[in-house]
Simulated assay, not measured.
Amino acid sequence: MTRRQLQPGRLVLATHNPGKVIELAELLEPHGLEIVSAGDLGLPEPEETGTTFIANAELKALAAATASGLPALADDSGLCVDSLGGAPGLYSARWAGPTKDFSIAMRRVRDEMPATAPDTVHFICALTLAWPDGHTESVEGRVDGRIAWPPRGANGFGYDPIFMMDGQFRTYGEMLRAEKESDNHRARAFAKLLTLLP
């Protein structure tokens, strides 16, 4: 089946997360698209009922495309801790509670990891482009690393202060945004979308 090419024009970022809006907008900047976020449009956040990252990304992208009448790009991503059976995974944001306080989520990760277990983890990012007619294109990116404790750095968002990518000695929270975005799970997924962008 032929993959669908995105045409120049407006694109909705189907997220209310300011950190994701910044990262995705910067990745999309060279492609001449007019970016608007779901939050800017006042679109509701759909309930994430998918059983995979791609399923949740598709659900969010389709909801935004249908509600706005515009193509939409959604991200679903999470931290997967090997010793916790992949948790928090799909529930990464929910571990931060109703106030979305990721210091709570990071502490929970640390508290639930068995003391003698390996500290290996990975970040997954699924990206879905959706059109108002229901067509979708999805890709996924992954980076492996380990947990750093205590949290280090004030840059980034979410679990960035405790994630140290393989081959690095700084957490994402200690990296400048340009360093982190040059090679992270979102950038790796985005690289797979490049052939579909204007």
Rank of each mutant, 00 (worst) to 15 (best):
I124G: 01
A25G: 14
K20T: 04
L33G: 07
L79A: 05
E47M: 09
E58C: 15
P18H: 02
A64Q: 04
A117G: 00
V109Q: 11
N17S: 12
E58H: 14
H31F: 15
T49R: 10
A55C: 02
H16S: 03
I124K: 07
E26A: 14
A93C: 00
E58V: 15
A65T: 13
I124R: 10
A67Q: 14
E26W: 12
P46R: 07
L62T: 11
L84M: 06
E23T: 15
A130Y: 07
V81S: 11
A126Q: 08
S68T: 10
E29I: 05
E47C: 08
R94P: 00
E26M: 13
L62I: 11
P71A: 11
A63T: 11
G69E: 12
G134F: 06
P46L: 06
G39E: 15
D119V: 00
A130D: 08
V36N: 13
D111G: 13
L127H: 07
T52L: 03
A64C: 05
L27Q: 04
L73G: 10
S37R: 12
L33A: 08
E112F: 08
G78Y: 01
A57T: 03
L43T: 04
D76K: 04
T51M: 07
G78K: 02
W95R: 05
L24V: 14
G134Q: 06
D133H: 13
E29Y: 09
P18L: 02
E112K: 11
K20N: 04
K20S: 03
A72V: 06
L127T: 06
V109E: 12
G19T: 09
T51I: 06
P18T: 02
T120K: 01
